[in-house]
Design a protein around this nucleic acid. Structure first.
Lengths: 343, 343
DNA sequence: CTGTTAGCGCATTCAG
DNA sequence: CTGAATGCGCTAACAG
């Protein structure tokens, strides 16, 4: 007669609950809970009965309840400044591929390169009680730092290495990379090396600083051949900025672009205008996106292991969550990919 | 003497709770709850007191508890077959930009083009009690369909239009797009039109079907000039497949690639080998990624409004969640971008 | 190995 | 407009 064991019921999602499964299997609720999380803690016999009941009823555990009871959400918050940028897409791919099999879910947010948005998002994310947080770069405000520290959640700052990690830090030194590329161009014999950048987020700024330091070391004017724009990166912008800078300084023989998109745009423009690359003008970029090796001439660039950086970032978090103690800071390194555009 | 109103405390995150704020402000917990969600339901006086208490204590609401009590999570689950693919990155960008300001959080998962993984992910996602689900394409298994329908959650299938939407559906017809491009090539005077595809997911397959139907209509052999690979798309693969197909059929005068990456790889290869595009060989792609208009010669391709498709997809969900009744199906349309590679 | 009891923090219901 | 009681579904702690 009592088909409905649920008694009161003012509310309720109507979904099958742990109690339903327990009733069906003729055991206590907690036993079902254990059978699902630590099967070895439950006798073979009960486990089978429970598994059957779970399947028959189509039970899906309620994460919110689980989170509330155990204060473990299995959620990792990821805050990126852009999603359409291939660099972050690859990073995200690596992060997800590492988290997913470990049973963690990825909650994503886009700050659009705005510090203000980033702070709001962090607030929003903290409300979710994430088990871990991944943020981009090392330039959060002091207030944000405090907020994050108080949250008491493992954090990885990714993409870029800094002196004072909030907690853990995975990335590369964009300053060192900017220097390395400039040095390389010098070694190749170029003497009038320009720098072209767009959007100029913190990482681009540090690449530029690397360029300027290298120029200074060689006794060159660090500002003369620099042209930056606050606009967003695009192929067209690369072409336009190159045109401007070269028109102003005809002696320029090499251009270091703050990313591959700009550099490729410049190469395409050279193709159209019949400028020989690298004979008349050497060109190099940053990131080593897939097209860098495909275009003609192929593009010299700084290669960074984006996907692996993502995996490493996530792994740091997992290590901490599983009680292992790893390094606080990991330099995943970069390398100069020497290709046709700077032969 | 009783500084700690919290009595038992075996557990507890230690974080500030609604009750703490209520005590501080000298009101009931529910009043604080209301002051945060519907400020106009609370008198000015109390609201000010409460706001102050919230700030002083640094209160952050606990989403899990909120979700459990209200069965509203404000989470939208998004399942994509790839994250590194620029098409999905842009789609995601649009989705996120629409959901974020509306107070919804995006939970992301990558099925790696695998139906099996997709099913597992859906299971995992349902455990989160999302308020809505976005999945890619129209080819889920019958079992998955049932599962999703039983969940009773608004769903949008995105990217591609189908006859039998699970719930809501936003996208384009890839078949029609494949036909349209093939027709266009015919109109341009090409007579030996090949098709080259990679990965051959469902949408690429439908583009191919569009090509084949158009070929048949013109009395052409629909299979003779087709070459597909199950490998993942890459620039290099585009070059290789082109080389193979052209070697086999020297009479081919136009190639329709299932995406821009393959097409661009082919164009770069032509540049290297001195093949005139489009004079000797016309080339076109699919998606209209940013580089399509930048490369030389610029690439004819099918343009699809990825970012807007993302926004529309998310908006459909929001409309439903806010009780508005919108259309079940939205065709966001495509267009042929005629550029230099098929002049 | 299994069950009982008691809450996790919030929002719903209903009463003032 | 405000509050008290109650339970959302699950798991930690302890007992058996």
């Amino acid at each position: 007669m009592d088909q409905k064991p649920k008694s009161s019921t003012r509310r309720g999602s109507g979904r099958v609950t742990l109690a339903d499964v327990a009733a069906r299997a003729g055991v206590g609720a907690i036993t079902v809970s254990r059978a699902l999380k630590n099967p070895q803690q439950v006798s073979e016999k009960l486990r089978v009965r429970i598994d059957r009941a779970v399947r028959e009823l189509g039970y899906i555990p309620n994460q919110a309840a689980r989170a509330l009871a155990s204060s473990e959400t299995k959620i990792i918050s990821v805050i990126f400044p852009s999603l359409s940028n291939a660099v972050f897409a690859d990073l995200l791919d690596g992060i997800h591929d590492c988290l997913q099999p470990a049973g963690y879910r990825t909650m994503l947010a886009n700050s659009h390169y705005s510090e203000g948005e980033e702070e709001e998002l962090i607030e929003m994310m903290l409300a979710q009680n994430p088990d871990g947080i991944i943020i981009t770069g090392i330039d959060q405000s002091e207030q944000t730092h405090q907020r994050l520290k108080r949250a008491g959640v493992p954090i990885v700052q990714t993409m870029e290495l800094g002196d004072n990690p909030l907690d853990m830090n995975v990335g590369i030194s964009h300053l060192a990379a900017g220097r390395a590329m400039t040095d390389y161009l010098f070694e190749q014999g170029y003497r009038h090396i320009g720098f072209i950048g767009a959007r100029m987020d913190k990482r681009s700024q540090r690449r530029l600083r690397g360029y300027r330091e290298a120029m200074l070391e060689r006794g060159q004017d660090p500002d003369r051949y620099v042209l930056t724009s606050l606009s967003n990166t695009s192929f067209q912008l690369g072409a336009d900025l190159m045109t401007q800078l070269v028109a102003r300084h005809g002696e320029i023989d090499a251009l270091f672009f703050s990313n591959d998109d700009l550099a490729a745009g410049a190469i395409f423009e050279c193709q159209r205008r019949g400028i020989q690359v690298p004979r008349q003008l050497a060109i190099c970029g940053f990131n080593d996106l897939e097209f860098a090796s495909a275009i003609a001439p192929s593009l010299t660039t700084v290669s960074i292991p984006r996907y692996d950086m993502g995996r490493t970032t996530a792994q740091c978090l997992l290590d901490r969550l599983q009680g292992r103690q790893g390094p606080r800071q990991i330099d995943v390194g970069f390398s100069i990919c020497r290709r046709e555009s700077t032969l």
